[in-house]
């Protein structure tokens, strides 16, 4: 039997490795799809599914994404889109954290909800979806709430946490855990036509400063609910921030908050 490297190089088209070759290599050499993906990237070859990433990201950066672990805290409106985009981007390990099951009022916006899955666990649905769209990605489902008591264990090993929660109090707990662990936190929140995003680096305590007195506040979403498009917009901005944090690229939204008004199509930047 040829060596792994020879088998893969023989079937690569230039430096692109087709999916069927990746699957066959995994079978022949007794590897998982994820192990095969890492081995291909280490040879400076690119799984062909990522070929439209390549003008933006080098193969070395694709390998860095694959070796990354991102915790998505909350798997509802924001979290579903965040997980989908992280998996397609090629982030190797995603920890999905949410205690909830799908209920009917989720169906207008939550990407992984469907009538068939009413009553099913949100994180289990996320795991099934990721297995379907990118089997090289490992999704670790954690059907529980992140608190200051459980947070350290849930976030252990992650390089960044994504705030896709739906309450101020829960966000403050997440922010506290991230700060104690020295983890960057990408924050997103939505309500009706409106959204906001920023990235909080360890020590900045942005969420704590902004929200400390607002623990019992009443967000816009309580009055307006959330439509299908606002979570998709804000989740996408969050994933762009995660990508840049993981690869140390571009200019992050830290020390400033982007607010988005989709009703009037206005954005506003607020210094933090």
């Amino acid at each position: 039997m040829p060596l792994f490297v020879d088998f893969v190089q023989e079937h690569a088209e230039a430096d692109l490795v087709p999916w069927e070759c990746q699957v066959e290599a995994a079978r022949r050499y007794g590897l998982t799809i994820a192990e095969t993906e890492e081995a291909i990237l280490r040879l400076d070859l690119l799984p062909a599914r990522y070929q439209r990433n390549r003008a933006m990201l080098t193969t070395a950066q694709q390998l860095r994404l694959f070796r990354s672990r991102v915790a998505v805290v909350g798997c509802g409106g924001l979290g579903g889109y965040v997980i989908e985009e992280l998996a397609r981007l090629g982030v190797g390990t995603i920890v999905a954290i949410d205690p909830d099951i799908f209920v009917e009022h989720n169906l207008n916006r939550q990407l992984y909800s469907s009538p068939r899955l009413l009553g099913a666990s949100k994180v289990a649905a996320a795991a099934a979806r990721v297995e379907e769209i990118n089997p090289a990605v490992t999704l670790i489902p954690r059907q529980e709430m992140l608190t200051t008591a459980t947070g350290r264990e849930l976030l252990h090993g992650s390089q960044v946490a994504v705030d896709a929660l739906d309450s101020i109090a829960a966000r403050l707990e997440l922010a506290e855990v991230c700060d104690a662990m020295g983890l960057p936190l990408v924050h997103g929140a939505i309500g009706g036509w409106y959204g906001q995003v920023f990235t909080q680096l360890p020590g900045q305590k942005t969420l704590q400063r902004l929200y400390a007195d607002l623990r019992d506040g009443r967000g816009v979403e309580k009055q307006l609910g959330n439509p299908s498009f606002t979570p998709a917009v804000v989740a996408s901005l969050e994933v762009a921030e995660v990508c840049k944090v993981l690869l140390a690229l571009g200019t992050r939204l830290s020390s400033r908050k982007l607010t988005i008004n989709l009703l009037d199509m206005e954005t506003e930047e607020i210094a933090l």
Partner: peptide, 8 residues
């Protein structure tokens, strides 16, 4: 003046 946003 900006209203509070808390949804996700």
């Amino acid at each position: 003046l900006f209203p509070l946003l808390g949804g996700g």
